[in-house]
Each structure stands twice: as C-alpha cells, then as structure tokens.
Amino acid sequence: MNILVAPDKFRGSLEADEVCNAIRAGILLAYPDANVTTVPLADGGEGTAQILTKQAGGTRIEVKVSDPLEREVTASYGLSADSEVAFIEMAAASGLKLLSENERNPLLTTTFGTGELILDALNRGVKKIILGIGGSATTDGGIGLAAALGFRFFDKNNKMLGVNGGNLSLIDRIETANADPRLSAVSIVVACDVSNPLFGTNGAAYVYGPQKGATAEMVEVLDNGLRNVADVASKTFGRDYSEVPGAGAAGGLGAGCMWFLNAELRDGVSIVIDQSNIVELIKQADLVITGEGKIDEQTLSGKVVKGLADFCQQYQVPLAAVCGTLQITPEQTRDAGITYAVSVLDRPMNLDVAQNEAFRLVRDATFQLVRLFFANTRSDFS
C-alpha cells in the first residue's frame, strides 16, 4: 500500500513538515508495513519559500534589509542548488509579524525591504524568482519594492516621494530610467492566494487594511491612493492591471509586481505542486492524505486541499483530508473530490488546548481514517 502524505501547515500549531510527521506516525500505527511518502505543501502564504527551497535542494541566504518601517532587519530567502532560482517571501522583510500591534499603520509601512531581497537575488545572478506575497504589513501598491529596484516616484511639483501607503495619492509621475535593467532578463512568478482587485470595496484597502492597523479613515485614504497609482502606472506602462484577480493581494503588491517587474501572478498551490513532482507521486499512490488547519468554502477555491483533489480525481486516487476545523457539508466534500474529511478534534476543547495537542490529534485522527480505509479495501490489498 503506497500512501502519499501532502498537507499544508496547521496555522499556529504545526508547520507542514510537522503535519507530515504526525500523519506518518498515525499511518504507521495503523499499518506498519505501509509505504509512506511525505511532501509538505503550501498555498503561497508564509512557509512557501522554505518548502520550495527544500524541494529544490537549496540553501538559505540571509540579508540585512529594511523592515516595514525602514528599520534594519535580517531577512532570509532560498536559493536553489544550481543558484538559478530564488524563493522569496515578502513577509520576511515586509510582513505583519515584524511589527508590534501598536506599530501597525499602512500609511507608513513600505515593501522596500522586499525589493532589497530581490536586488540581492539579482546580484547573485538568478534567472528566476518565485515571490510569495502573503502576510504583508503594507498597502503601498508595490512602490516600495519598486523604489529599491531603481524606480522613482514624484508629485505634481516634481518632488521625489517617500514610498509608503500615505503617499500613493500624491504620485503624479513614475520615473523608470534608473530601473534595474536585469529585471527584463529574469522570469518572476508571484505566488498569490487571493483574488481581490486593487481597489474598491473588495480591494486591498477595504478588505485587508483593517488587519494591518488601518482605521476607517485610513482605509479611504489608502483606497484613493491605490486608485491614483493605478491611473499613473497604467499610463506609464500602457497596461491596467487593477482588475486582474490578485491585483489587490498584499496591499496591492500583486498589481505592483505586474507593473514594475512584469511578473506573472499564479495561485501558490499550482506553483508548489509544479515544483514538487507530486503529480507522479499521486499516480503511484493508493491513498493520498492531506490536511490544513481549517477546511471551509475558501479551501474549495484554490487552497492545497482543492489543488490535490483535482489531481486525485483526474487519476482516480482517493483523497482523505484531516483538519482542525471542518466547515464544509458532505455535499461540498463530495463535489470537491474529497473522499473523506474529518476534524482531528476528539472532544470539546479551546484553541490553546487544540494547538498544544495538535501533533497527537492529527496522529490519532489519521490512525482512525487509515484503519477505516484499509478495512474497506482489504480484499483489494490482501
């Protein structure tokens, strides 16, 4: 019996490789002779670069860059074994996790440090960059990142502007003459796990601004600023990306990457799956087990579980999913191509207890589902 284990992280409790270990332990408790292959996955959010680097046999590079408030911080990114691909997470330099709660203010924060990570990768001669843009502290439309790479932003009085969310509405002109020429020779793919447009009630400022510290008044200022930068950038580059799904990701960095880096936006799940050779492993599997902290309707529109379900359906391999919270109906489970989905919670408990006991809970739930699967298929594998 070949079992492929390919989960996402359980946010706040287990990283993806730890979930792999817990599921593997549960499988081997049920059937010690099972042949288990583990592949930790991610959806483009935090942890994606680490997983991609590991899959590429790469190394971690540490660089001193600017944090969201332009203080020096040490950030890291991954470099493939052949030094041709860089795996960067904007959260490493421009993430919300780098700020205390009272420091959160998207009028002041910038993606400049993320641009510095890209610059370091260019200095190392990479040919491709995969950039994950989850977990941002910023709503600057990517102008900070662009400034680190040589772009300049001016107001109507020809005064060069600081590159933060508060100055978006003042931008009158974008100067491209000093942009790093190496950008045109590098392929840049952005891992994006949301589909929001750049501005409007479903855009970057209104949907994600409050969690970054924006008040209602700030949200309006930021949204107007994103509308302005979209107008100026569209005229400068001859393309309007403001309505492209994902343009509003990471405070408008999705759109900024398309304008300033000529980047391609892709869902993070497909990028990780492409890099992992997982399709071949699915073809060889008798059962695939995946999981993430919560399975809900959002899971069905591009997360790891849905990405795997599509391939498992294609190759007629059963897919089981374990999760902390299960919030989809049996009909949704069936329609998504998930054979079996179960919450790992085995009794009423609060979040702290669930997180502290996560490894055991995942292991034990896996034990039960594998025993059930083998009981139903034992005649086929006797």
Rank of each mutant, 00 (worst) to 15 (best):
281 L>R: 07
309 A>T: 01
297 E>Q: 15
368 Q>I: 10
310 D>C: 11
360 R>Q: 12
277 N>I: 03
268 G>L: 04
307 G>D: 00
293 G>I: 02
287 L>G: 03
332 Q>Y: 08
342 V>D: 14
350 N>P: 11
367 F>G: 05
348 P>W: 06
365 A>W: 07
281 L>D: 01
298 Q>S: 10
262 N>D: 10
309 A>S: 06
305 V>W: 02
311 F>K: 15
353 V>C: 11
328 I>W: 07
265 L>I: 06
310 D>L: 14
320 A>T: 06
275 Q>Y: 09
254 G>T: 06
282 I>S: 00
324 G>L: 07
314 Q>V: 07
331 E>R: 15
361 L>F: 15
278 I>V: 08
299 T>C: 04
327 Q>T: 14
264 E>M: 08
349 M>L: 12
341 A>D: 09
293 G>R: 09
259 W>Y: 11
360 R>D: 13
366 T>D: 07
367 F>Y: 15
309 A>G: 04
336 A>L: 01
316 Q>R: 12
287 L>A: 01
319 L>E: 03
255 A>V: 11
325 T>Q: 13
339 T>G: 11
305 V>G: 01
323 C>V: 07
280 E>G: 06
279 V>T: 08
302 G>A: 06
349 M>E: 12
270 S>N: 10
252 G>M: 08
308 L>P: 00
315 Y>W: 06
294 K>S: 10
276 S>Y: 02
258 M>Q: 06
333 T>G: 12
353 V>F: 15
313 Q>A: 15
258 M>E: 00
319 L>S: 03
287 L>D: 01
329 T>R: 08
